[in-house]
């Protein structure tokens, strides 16, 4: 395993006390594997990835669990060891490339800085390598772009620069947090194609965080579905789309308006909203939005366990289908 997250619990200090934003998450990423993490806002998918990078700010901390990357426990590394690893063996790209590029330095400055810190190249060679990276991510006129400032580039170009920077040090793991969400669809298609090409070339593992099931279907080998700080379902991408077991996953699938086959008159939706972190429901965290919930779901929190080889789920109904009433209860008015 390249990356092994085990029972991760990440908390943040707030005015209202400590809130748990990631609660017992375990994820494994193998070599060369692309793992998709999907969920809605506040489900903890971004905090999980920031915990791996240890970029939690001064209010956040990993309270329990461990994150092992290439055998090392990241929680025990010093700040300087971490800095060496970030951007080196492990790189990250974010949703909004403008905020992660420094507006007062040229693209070239920033690329060369990353290369200087994480490689043995010197002088002119660094610059040549930076231009080569820009070419690789499909940037036209790379020599001119090296001298440009980030504000002069379009959103798609900035994201390409970020990808060039992230990949310049040949990371073993690339964490991509909603890398295409801020981009237009035609640009998104370009960036996804680019990521696929580079994945094959460099052989890096990718942890892809997104709310878009279309992007997941396009890119991921394995998928982790998160809800309210926990993993609720995990399996390979084909099984997830063909046989989703958690009612939340099923609801998500049904609520996307489909482009190519007609969705008919009403779109299915999941009633209610995601519970706030400060006020998690007892029992299963999804029970008050779930059409199948019973009394057991209100009282006992289900555990996350495999139902078949390679398909795990956190749901009583999915784990014990034979004892469960399979008819959904009448949907309450939303």
């Amino acid at each position: 395993m390249l990356l092994e997250i085990k029972d991760l619990k990440t908390v943040f200090k707030t005015e209202k006390g400590e809130v748990t934003s990631v609660d017992g998450v375990s994820i494994q990423v193998g070599k060369g594997e692309t793992i998709g993490i999907v969920g809605e806002s506040g489900c903890g998918k971004s905090v999980t990835s920031l915990s791996v990078m240890r970029l939690l700010g001064k209010n956040g901390r990993i309270k329990e669990g461990e994150v092992r990357f290439m055998g090392k426990d990241l929680a025990k590394l010093s700040e300087s060891e971490l800095r060496q690893m970030r951007g080196g063996e492990m790189a990250m790209i974010f949703q909004e490339p403008m905020t992660s590029l420094n507006p007062v330095f040229t693209v070239g400055n920033q690329l060369v800085e990353a290369i200087r810190l994480h490689s043995d190249l010197k002088g002119k060679a660094m610059e040549e390598y930076a231009i080569e990276m820009l070419k690789k991510v499909g940037i036209p006129r790379p020599d001119a772009i090296m001298k440009s400032f980030p504000h002069a580039l379009s959103g798609g170009m900035r994201q390409r620069v970020m990808i060039a920077m992230a990949l310049s040090c040949k990371p073993k793991l690339l964490i991509a947090d909603e890398p295409t969400t801020a981009l237009d669809v035609t640009i998104q298609a370009q960036i996804l194609n680019l990521m696929k090409g580079l994945r094959e070339e460099i052989g890096a593992s990718i942890m892809l965080i997104t709310h878009d099931l279309g992007v997941i279907a396009e890119m991921a080998d394995k998928v982790v579905v998160m809800y309210a700080g926990q993993v609720v379902e995990e399996t390979d991408v084909y099984t997830l789309f063909e046989n989703p077991l958690h009612p939340y996953t099923q609801g998500l699938m049904k609520s996307i308006p489909h482009l190519h086959n007609d969705t008919g008159d009403t779109l299915e939706s999941i009633p209610g909203a995601v519970p706030p972190l400060t006020n998690m429901p007892a029992g299963c965290r999804f029970h008050d939005r779930c059409a199948f919930a019973s009394e057991k779901c209100q009282l006992d929190a289900p555990v996350f366990k495999p139902v078949t080889e390679g398909h795990s789920v956190r749901c009583w109904k999915a784990q014990e289908p034979e004892v469960w009433q399979l008819e959904p209860r009448e949907e309450e008015a939303v």
Partner: peptide
């Protein structure tokens, strides 16, 4: 065409 289709078999 640019929209990723939520069907992994069609990727």
């Amino acid at each position: 065409n640019a929209y990723p289709v939520p069907e992994p078999r069609k990727r």
